[in-house]
Design a protein around this nucleic acid. Structure first.
Lengths: 201, 201
DNA sequence: CAGCCCCCTATGCAATCGGATAGTCAGGGC
DNA sequence: GCCCTGACTATCCGATTGCATAGGGGGCTG
């Protein structure tokens, strides 16, 4: 029987979900109520074939906990969250999560998601990509701003970007300022990160 | 019968894969040999339920083509590649790809991957996350450098990072310089991008 | 055609970054 | 004890960025 580990600090959620997985999925589910306990349980009762961690939980420290658990157990680790944004979901996957499980997921979908991850695939509900694109809709950079943003993400200086685009450095500065304002970025570096996260290039 | 569109400029690959999907998967597969032809076919013979685009193909222009095709058809679009790195794969997913298909994939896996994406899920072979982590192994930042890098990715200035960490601004500068060297980054912005791509935080 | 948007340029200045150099201090390994 | 590394501090200086202000020219649209 496949062994799962579910860590969440909300007891109601944790135990009902665990029971559901036991009954509907036929899994052997262990639980933990904090990140540290999850680490202990993983060592004491392991090996597990899949670990699910709540994103906001004592000791979890965001995605650092994900990396720690992956290093510890070597098995797929999924992130569970009730509030997380598409941005967090994408970062979780980039950080090596086996999947992202919003708590709004239909129970039956959870079982198939778990099976899915057990077979070595990445699970990501489509909703998150949809909503992401809607959210982006109100941000529209001009073609030139996009060019400049691309240069920034490649680590180029204003001078280099200007040369590559055949325009003056001052003009690049102008675009940097305007696109940063549109993105709500504090500076060029922040703009680069937001630009990539939002998939603007 | 589910309609797929496969675009690849290598005829041998394109037609053999298409035939395989027809025979083994029972799909209706249309093909195109360039990005522009893919757009035309998508309009003329659509709607399709899944589009697969070769990553390097005339007119494709990397991930811009992905976005264009998604906007055009509104259906899931997967990226196909023989050479792409984990980095490109992750960017493709961040840009809204329905999946990433390396050409080293076992044929039977391809069929299941396609079914998978047709059901609205994201497909990503586990290999890519594995190799990614191995590749990262030779880059090891000190804990402090990691702290500083995190601050940079959040768009903070050296002064802010120093205040948050309780150290002097000059020290932050030192860390910025050394971590940039370790990452092979040209400046802080580049370091932030590389750091996120490599999942170092 | 007038208004608007995008693109481009220019000048000037303050803040920040990037790099070099030169140290102190604590801890681990030989 | 010696060597090495990580972390931290200091000063100096040039390069770059960020911001404000003030324009010109082209294209699209009501």
């Amino acid at each position: 029987m496949q062994k799962l580990l579910l860590a969440d600090d909300h007891e109601l959620v944790r135990e009902t979900v665990a029971d559901f997985l036991r009954l509907q999925g036929g899994f052997n589910v262990a639980t933990a109520q904090s990140f540290d306990e999850a680490i202990s349980v993983a060592q004491a009762q392991g090996p597990f074939e899949l670990v699910m961690l709540d994103y906001s939980m004592p000791g979890m420290d965001a995605l650092a906990g994900l990396a720690k658990m992956r290093a510890q157990t070597g098995c797929p680790v999924a992130i569970l969250s009730g509030t997380a944004t598409p941005d967090v979901a994408r970062r979780a996957l980039s950080s090596g999560a086996a999947g992202f499980l919003p708590k709004t997921l239909a129970p039956q979908s959870l079982v198939s998601a778990v099976r899915h991850m057990l077979s070595g695939e990445i699970y990501m509900p489509l909703d998150f990509f949809e909503t992401e694109n809607e959210a982006d809709a109100d941000i529209n950079l001009t073609p030139r701003e996009r060019d400049v943003l691309l240069g920034i993400t490649e680590g180029k200086s204003n001078k280099e970007i200007a040369r590559d685009l055949g325009i003056q450095e001052v003009t690049v500065k102008l675009h940097v300022k305007t696109l940063s304002r549109k993105l709500g970025a504090r500076n060029r570096t922040h703009a680069a990160m937001l630009g990539r996260d939002l998939g603007l290039m």
